[in-house]
Write a protein that binds this DNA or RNA. Structure first.
Length: 253
DNA sequence: GCTCCATAAGTGCAGTCTAA
DNA sequence: TTAGACTGCACTTATGGAGC
């Protein structure tokens, strides 16, 4: 999908991009190989070629951050298929909703390993940096509004400057409404019985149960809930991406 | 080459919605 | 309940084509 993206060119939005696709130019290679493109002025093509060559170089060198700088933020989801093997799926629990809330549990799910880090045990800047090390894309649900700003506030030394695929907004583009839990239900995702009714507010309650009464069961449920939230993001990201490609991109390959 | 008009992208603002 | 990213709308700006 990323090599089909022309919205990195000046004055090219969704409509112009579709016109370019429909002229038979479907990839960056097509664009560079063409001597002329019917819907594009020669001067514009001359100006655009170096930008596309730069994007190809960045893609070849797997520089997701620099590539994301060229692409409008709402279109960063297009990078997912290319960088999915190096994606980090992220979800956090806190003791409230404020920006300076205490982060209680963080799960980072990677291709080969899932890290669940807990306040008072193993949650610190170093372990969080280790969990995110080498990740090219961050996949979250509402993470751009909540998880990442909260983590940046609590762990300012951790680098969160990673292109983000936020499933809250991506799922809206393809017609889904509501939060993560209704989305899971709609996609047929089932949770274990002991966490099926848990939500964010209950997660706060479980944390206080643990802190005030030393209730280990409450802590275990909280960790399991956070882990399930995060691991499920991988499946959801794939489904939403496929729908975006066929529905939102406005062109069937 | 200039002007006018149509089209598309960019910008700014208010409203929406989600997280725990 | 709070914060902020995104969306949608209205308005502005830029670009390209047509006509003179």
């Amino acid at each position: 999908m990323i090599e089909h993206t022309f919205q990195l060119l000046p004055s090219v939005g969704a409509k112009k991009e579709k016109v370019i696709w429909e002229s038979g130019v479907r990839t960056w290679d097509d664009f560079l190989a063409a001597d002329s493109i019917e819907c594009v002025k020669p001067a514009f093509k001359e100006k655009s070629d170096p930008i596309i060559m730069q994007a190809e170089e960045l893609l070849k060198s797997e520089d997701a951050g620099a590539l994301a700088d060229l692409i409008p933020k709402p279109e960063h989801w297009r990078m997912y298929r290319h960088f999915m093997d190096d994606a980090a799926y992220l979800d956090i629990e806190t003791d409230g909703l404020s920006r300076d809330a205490l982060v209680t549990v963080v799960t980072v799910h990677r291709k080969n390993k899932t890290y669940t880090l807990t306040e008072g045990f193993d949650l610190d800047s170093e372990s969080l940096s280790d969990a995110l090390k080498g990740s090219k894309m961050l996949v979250t649900f509402n993470g751009s509004c909540f998880d990442v700003p909260v983590l940046k506030n609590s762990f300012p030394e951790v680098d969160f400057d990673i292109p983000q695929y936020d499933l809250r907004f991506a799922s809206r583009k393809v017609g889904y409404r509501g939060g993560l839990k209704p989305l899971e239900v709609e996609l047929g995702i089932h949770r274990d019985e002991d966490i099926v009714d848990v939500d964010g507010a209950m997660a706060v309650h479980f944390w206080h149960q643990w802190k005030r009464h030393g209730d280990e069961d409450a802590l275990n449920i909280l960790q399991e809930y956070n882990r399930a939230d995060t691991v499920n993001l991988e499946y959801i990201a794939g489904v939403i991406f496929d729908k975006l490609v066929t529905d939102h991109a406005g062109y069937r390959w």
